[in-house]
Design a protein around this nucleic acid. Structure first.
Lengths: 344, 344
DNA sequence: CTGAAAGCGCTTACAG
DNA sequence: CTGAAAGCGCTTACAG
């Protein structure tokens, strides 16, 4: 069915006729940079006027085919929870939209439920000029990208150096948090790994930071606690004199639920136990008590990813090689961490 | 710059040559429904084989121009905070992606920072087949949609019946919450309106539900409290014997901060004051204490919006007229509401 | 600086 | 059922 709105829509031919110039000249007048000598000022003025009078707007559909560019970038994301990036990816996605928009690209979310034919089609049918992926990315999806030669930058992924990447220094971030806890005087510190222990480099590095920091402080690291947050809270409660005075939670979603579970157990934070975590995103600052977190440089990650990807699109030499940048995290101290009991 | 990957990519002409048929027949074999007699089984088989052998995939760019359809739907959203819908729109957007995807449409987020030329271009250049908007929508944007005849469905908007809409019965939802509080025995109930008092129909209806419910219960409604959540908490604390025993907060983001502010004041929830709010979305269930909320039927809203929009695209008669559906909310009782002091 | 022509990769009446 | 031709609305060498 043809849309009504298409019927009376002026095309570039209408503009050309209306001002007595050719389609080619109209196109140039519309696209040539302002200083360009490709088109005369006279022609430019007439075209501008005709465009105004006819209410002409170039058809994106025509442009896409002729230019072989869609100006659309896929934001590929395999959410454990839903179609839209959330949590730590909020800020990144916000910033991606901002930086891409400033360069006249538009982001399109590509939810990678599974590496199925739908995804393959999206990646292979030329609708995207490139792709930025967020977080863990399944090998079959990487394989699709490779096969279709989709220019890609992977943010915080599990991919190797054969890909262009923007990574984050979780080892350093974890050490910042551990240093903070150790400086407060904590000695019995536990690490909570949720259920997804080591399937992401970040998870590995965060635990590694704990392990190394403990050893460097002359302490014995414990294996990561794996299991439900309620069980972890009970373990803390049951610890008695040997209970940890501080815990590191691998990410803020679970830390928020940990605060609730501790509250149910009557364990006070930070009086009985300090809680530190990663990802300084809503509502880390709004819970009871406000969470001490390690913050990712989300905006900077987005800036680097966009810059890297768009450069790949335009600079063949640059695209030839592969690039990785790694950014540092920072510590945000709030009220969920404090001096351990007995050390006041 | 031409992408490398374009060079060796097979086109429909390659397929046609490879199997000794015409482009037209290949196109039909690829697009005609399975039972169709438009193309012979023999041709179908040969095409399928050639496609396989060449690794052919139809170019989306070519299809978009020829079909005059992009299969892309704009999700228009003017976030107060960032480029990606959040809070109550999470579930809606998740479901929109799901329902659109099932019909082979892909959603693209269109962040309406302001009604500028960028937005006008997006809406007017034919890159979207239609638009679903979320929440408040600025009149200039509506005007753009009207001007460019963009098929649109507005979810939870401030627009009138001259638009296709999916609305929510906030009056009914608010009454559910008030009924719950009144049934618990509360009499001194306050309404917290944040800073955005009445700029959205939802905000108006939620307060109206409070007002009407109070009157029907023979009580005197108070004007909505407008101001910072910390000030509201202080007001509650300072109330002494006349302090409210329950409050209704207009939405969950601020309710979470209200819990924190009350905690700072040493006011216990729900022992000293019950807190009820709207939007049953993360982390309403994870805070201390878990929040009693009014839940929006997000998935159903998305389903209705997609159905309405896609029908508009295909059914001229349906598109002729304008449609509105209004869905009911439901109450989710958790631990932030309880029997008022002295009534136990 | 301008324009006729070819091309981007499909789909769709239309004739056979 | 098949295919030649025209068309979707632009851009881009190329010739002048």
């Amino acid at each position: 069915v043809l849309q009504n709105d298409e019927a009376d829509r002026p095309t570039i031919l209408d503009v050309a006729r209306h001002c007595g110039l050719s389609k080619a000249t109209v196109s140039k007048a519309l696209n040539a940079p302002d200083g360009s000598t490709l088109v005369s000022d006279h022609a430019r003025a007439r075209v501008r006027r005709a465009v105004e009078e006819l209410g002409y707007r170039p058809s994106w559909r025509g442009q896409v085919l002729a230019r072989r560019r869609s100006q659309a970038i896929a934001i590929a994301y395999s959410a454990p929870v839903g179609a839209v990036p959330r949590g730590v990816y909020w800020e990144i996605v916000d910033s991606l939209e901002e930086f891409l928009g400033a360069r006249d690209y538009i982001p399109t979310f590509l939810h990678l439920r599974q590496a199925d034919d739908r995804v393959e089609r999206m990646l292979g049918d030329g609708r995207f000029d490139g792709c930025i992926s967020l977080g863990l990315i399944a090998p079959p999806v990487l394989e699709m990208m490779r096969r279709h030669r989709v220019p890609a930058v992977l943010i915080n992924s599990n991919a190797g150096p054969e890909w262009c990447r923007v990574n984050v220094n979780d080892l350093g971030g974890g050490r910042l948090l551990m240093r903070h806890l150790l400086d407060l005087g904590h000695r019995r510190i536990l690490y909570y790994a949720g259920k997804a222990v080591l399937d992401h480099p970040s998870a590995r590095d965060r635990y590694e930071a704990y392990r190394v920091s403990m050893i460097e402080a002359g302490l014995k690291p414990r294996p990561p606690f794996v299991g439900a947050v309620e069980d972890f809270a009970k373990t803390i409660k049951a610890g008695g004199r040997d209970a940890p005075t501080a815990v590191v939670d691998f990410e803020h979603f679970s830390a928020i639920r940990l605060l609730q579970a501790l509250w149910r157990q009557g364990v006070r934070v930070p009086d009985d136990v300090s809680v530190g975590t990663f990802n300084d995103t809503h509502p880390a600052a709004d819970v009871i008590p406000p969470l001490t977190t390690v913050a990712l440089p989300g905006r900077e990650m987005a800036r680097q990813a966009v810059e890297m990807l768009l450069r790949k699109l335009d600079d063949a030499d640059f695209a030839q090689r592969t690039h990785t940048v790694t950014l540092d995290e920072s510590l945000v101290v709030r009220e969920s961490t404090g001096v351990p009991r007995g050390n006041e």
